[in-house]
Design a protein around this nucleic acid. Structure first.
Lengths: 360, 360
DNA sequence: GTGAAAGCGCTAACAG
DNA sequence: CTGTTAGCGCTTTCAC
């Protein structure tokens, strides 16, 4: 009847609390109390247990502990990898803040694919994470979560309309509208928009789809309403959807900017696309600032150093990540408490890539 | 004697295999067999179990499973966050490759602090990860690991001299030497080196310390030997150690470049420092390419687009990460097999930031 | 202050 | 083909 089960999860031979107890000459319960610092243990016994523990190099098995306790002190981060700079800053903010609050972070990437997102969330739930931060790649269709979700969830950057969970995002619509406003104040009337597109299981989505990412929709909406507000026509051929990789994004930008009736100003929806636009301008020998004005979403280290220095929509990405995690932990510990969603505002950092249109 | 233990880890009320078994009218063992697809179960029983499982929305509890099986299908990544671009690419490569091979990734950041690294590894081991990828912030002093380590370990990018584990890195010394060679071929004789510095529990380390990071030491060594090879003096005041944040790195670069006897060429040890150097040049009104030639380690999306386009040492960072993970998984599954360490070579991408020194 | 024992959810050896 | 049962390592109630 002896069961051949490997001793301990993955670390054969690692000392168990039983070993500590044996060496200290006490029961498992007493050893646990002494090590856990709860209940009451005589000073002397406690010391003997401590010594036994260090002598054996004992460390508690967190898997067994999680099983007994019913929580793992682990949170899951599902991130769509929209853009390098966003991924980097948000991930760092979350990991750091989580560590500070006593949680570890399981990070899964979805490459903007909703199918991968579904699988990721399921796996994370299977691993019994205490909470989830999701940078979703769809605005609706979150059938992978019950409502309310089995564990606290915070949506980061992008809204989910069909899940009752807190969202931490920025006011993209206003930001896009302000960009249009800045362009028009400089005398532009032809403003283009360079977007990325999302996919579900490899299939591309139109921005009118209910699945389309909320930030993207917000920015498109802001651009449209900004144009209307200024009494300018909203031209659909100035709205371009590009793939995620640099080369095809550049190709899309070139296509947009080589139309005869091309825009004189361009808003790029993230920093990678801004870079692609810059590259396209170099190729087309278009001078940024005079031939074409440019604004990009998300500030980066290179933006002020490129020439001309890039005017950007600066979003508090790091703070967004930290806030998302803090909200999540609030929900995890404070049982019933549901924090409000928060919308931070973005700010325009004017540098040198926006100027009056040439001859206009 | 009823124990008030929360049902299931973190997800109260989640269906257990017992519930599935009950609904299907079979024993737990049979349900497990049907779901796990091992042993033999009659077709009809199997179908009944499957149906019960979907009806209840059953998902196996991976914590309990890990406890029983002795492994977690989780690996730990401890990353020092040397530079944004490295972190981003390496992390992405590891997470993606891990997912492909059936592992999830627990990511901890150490901010280049060795104390944090020690804590991170311990926590990860406590959580019973199946293996560890470490971007260490010290070349020696890895007292947090037994030798051999309790689980497979791969050191990424930076070597550890005191642990018997596989290392996946690039040939930094040769790369740095080649940079010096490129500079001298363009007629430079005064070549500076802009480095970052690492810390242990907040205390800064000299590069001669046995704790100093191997990549940094490699690059310093390569620079020195390159200079000697060319019969040029190695000036210690042309070797500058900068902090990690942009502003103080820029200040260090300014200090280096405003010496009367300043270098005419500069090698920056990572892309963030290259950017700081560029910023410093702007501030000092030094024209890159003519007043000062510049090379940076690690290629980035902005490097070809900045003006003048930056000459860089391109390292296969993504491949480095993927390779590290593959090596790790080989060790995890192939029990005794210890893969060889691998040193990939870097390549120089010549763009426009290196030219003949002005008047020289 | 300390020990015995139960049980978290799962798998697998063994018996039938 | 199926059921019984032990046990992974831990915490905690209950009894002493």
């Amino acid at each position: 009847m002896t069961d051949q089960v490997p001793r301990s999860s993955g670390q054969a031979g690692a000392p168990r609390i039983t070993d500590v107890a044996a060496l200290a000459g006490v029961s498992r319960a007493t050893a646990a109390r002494a090590l856990g610092g709860y209940g009451s243990v005589s000073f002397d016994t406690s010391r003997r247990v401590q010594e036994a523990a260090v002598q054996l190099g004992y460390r508690s098995n967190e898997i067994a502990r999680a099983m007994r306790l019913g929580h793992t002190s682990t949170i899951g981060l599902v991130i769509a990898d929209i853009s390098g700079s966003f991924f980097y800053q948000a991930t760092l903010a979350i990991i750091r803040t989580a560590a500070r609050l006593g949680f570890q972070t399981l990070v899964l990437n979805t490459d903007e694919d909703f199918g991968a997102e579904r699988r990721a969330v399921r796996e994370l739930l299977d691993k019994r994470v205490d909470g989830l931060i999701i940078v979703t790649s769809a605005r609706t269709g979150h059938d992978y979560l019950t409502n309310p979700p089995p564990v606290p969830v915070v949506f980061l950057d992008r809204r989910a309309d069909d899940v009752d969970a807190c969202v931490v995002s920025t006011d993209d619509e206003s930001a896009a509208r302000e960009c249009v406003s800045l362009f028009t104040r400089h005398g532009h009337s032809r403003v283009g928009l360079l977007c990325n597109s999302s996919t579900v299981d490899g299939k591309r989505l139109p921005y009118t789809s209910p699945l389309a990412i909320s930030t993207m929709v917000g920015r498109v909406t802001g651009w449209m309403s900004g144009m209307k507000q200024a009494g300018l026509p909203v031209r659909s051929d100035w709205l371009v959807f590009a793939e995620d990789d640099h080369e095809s994004a550049k190709a899309s930008a070139i296509r947009l900017l080589s139309q005869r009736d091309r825009p004189s100003a361009l808003l790029a929806i993230n920093s990678e696309l801004a870079l692609a636009a810059i590259d396209a301008c170099h190729t087309l020998k278009l001078e940024i600032g005079s031939d074409i004005s440019l604004i990009g979403f998300d500030d980066t280290a290179w933006a002020p150093l490129i020439s001309p220095a890039l005017t950007v929509v600066s979003r508090p990405v790091y703070r967004l990540g930290a806030l998302a995690l803090e909200n999540l932990v609030l929900q995890i510990s404070g049982s019933q408490f549901r924090p409000e969603s928060v919308v931070l505002s973005a700010s325009l950092i004017e540098r040198a890539s926006v100027d009056a249109p040439r001859g206009g």
